[in-house]
Design a protein around this nucleic acid. Structure first.
Ligand SMILES: [Mn+2]
Ligand SMILES: [Mn+2]
Ligand SMILES: [Mn+2]
Ligand SMILES: [Mn+2]
Lengths: 218, 218
DNA sequence: TAATAAAATTAGGTTTGCCTAATTTTATTA
DNA sequence: TAATAAAATTAGGCAAACCTAATTTTATTA
């Protein structure tokens, strides 16, 4: 069994491997992702290599082995299922669930994820729009198109969020944006790339380019 | 916030303090309860004393402070609520839930216990018949009368179990005994104190004295 | 009371997962 | 290419939570 810490590393490495902008998973990228020191990452790279969960090549960086990938996906599965539970059953808010799921994802018991999955009715997506891996490890592709790539005048459906921080989710909540909301791009301001949008056909609102980059559309 | 390990010590100390047979909570009793070495317990006694969660007196042994008791009860509350969840919602068996709850009880988030409590319909007892502490820390008295103290010829209702090990619970399952089952004491065998009982008016069955000691009646 | 047994404590050590500071290796850029 | 910057690694250390072995304290019993 992997420790709490090993699991967080596997998950971070998996997440980095899914990012199209990241071509090589470096020591420093992992350190950055976890908020740890690069020296600590070197220690863990050694440990996970010994356990055959990753392969490390000075040139190519870190890569999950099949075994490591399988483990990472199971943690993500648990994380996302617990998020659905916390939102739907315990009625937590959108912005509260991630941190609690970050702890719950490490609970280990053979078929806990499967029972939870069944109890929740086999949900396809978590509350942030991320696909929930199936018991066999199969997982739908994540939404990757950003609202930032939308055309002025176009209307788009919010499918997922890229940033899952409380700050961002609380802001979305304030703007009444959630999964399924329709957003029309009215105008882009040349000065700073901020955007004027209409939320569910409401009054025009101005948001930053950083904001729209973190909204994913279907 | 207390660590996982500190919480397990607090819980063990609380449990010992509830046992009428234990007059003084000694280093060795705690070590025994947790399966740790007495030397490790000495370390932790120091730590919990510094945090003002316990008081230690060479003569009187360990005692929880008001603060320590409050923390211990909240952990027990979470443990028992999660057990109800696992049994009723995830359909785990009686003998499977304790170990999973042992992990879940340490998940920390301000109102997780309260939301879970509400979701489960404010249950009074956990699946082993132990009372679930309320949000304010109030807790019904545990059942303490043992079937071993029953009179020959008498019929008693199973209210709780003293031992919560898988081995014991699986045996109960096999004998079709659960909370609410009626047991009649038919005869005590003088040789080894084993007992002949009738379960829900069924055929006579012989069980050991150790067995009946671990069944609590109302 | 003296001998013995049990309990508690101390001393020193290990593993895990982190850190800082120094150094070495690899990339960038003038 | 040489200088500089960035990334990776090494060396050494720390806190938490355990351990074993040795010693001291307290309790029991002959
Ligand atoms: Mn999340
Ligand atoms: Mn985590
Ligand atoms: Mn239990
Ligand atoms: Mn526990």
């Amino acid at each position: 069994m992997n420790t709490f810490s090993e699991e967080n590393y596997l998950k971070a490495i998996f997440r980095l491997s899914q990012m199209p902008t990241v071509s090589k998973i470096s020591t420093s990228a992992i350190a950055e992702a976890l908020g740890n020191n690069p020296a600590s990452v070197v220690d863990m790279i050694r440990k996970l290599t010994d356990k055959q969960l990753i392969e490390y090549d000075k040139k190519k960086g870190v890569k999950l082995t099949a075994h490591g990938q399988k483990d990472a996906i199971q943690i993500i599965r648990k994380h996302r299922l617990w998020e659905v539970f916390l939102l739907e059953k315990l009625e937590y808010r959108w912005d509260e669930i991630h941190d609690i799921a970050e702890e719950l994802e490490h609970i280990k018991h053979s078929d806990l994820a499967d029972r939870l999955d069944k109890f929740l009715g086999f949900p396809e997506y978590d509350p942030h729009g991320d696909p929930i891996p199936k018991a066999n490890g199969k997982m739908a592709k994540s939404f990757s198109a950003s609202l930032a790539d939308g055309k002025t005048g176009g209307t788009y459906r919010v499918a997922a969020v890229r940033d899952t921080s409380s700050a961002f989710l609380q802001y979305l909540h304030k703007l009444k944006i959630s999964i399924g909301t329709q957003i029309r791009l009215i105008e882009q301001i040349a000065f700073d790339q901020s955007l004027v949008i209409s939320i569910d056909n409401g009054e025009p609102t101005t948001v930053s380019s950083k904001f729209v980059e973190n909204i994913l559309i279907s």
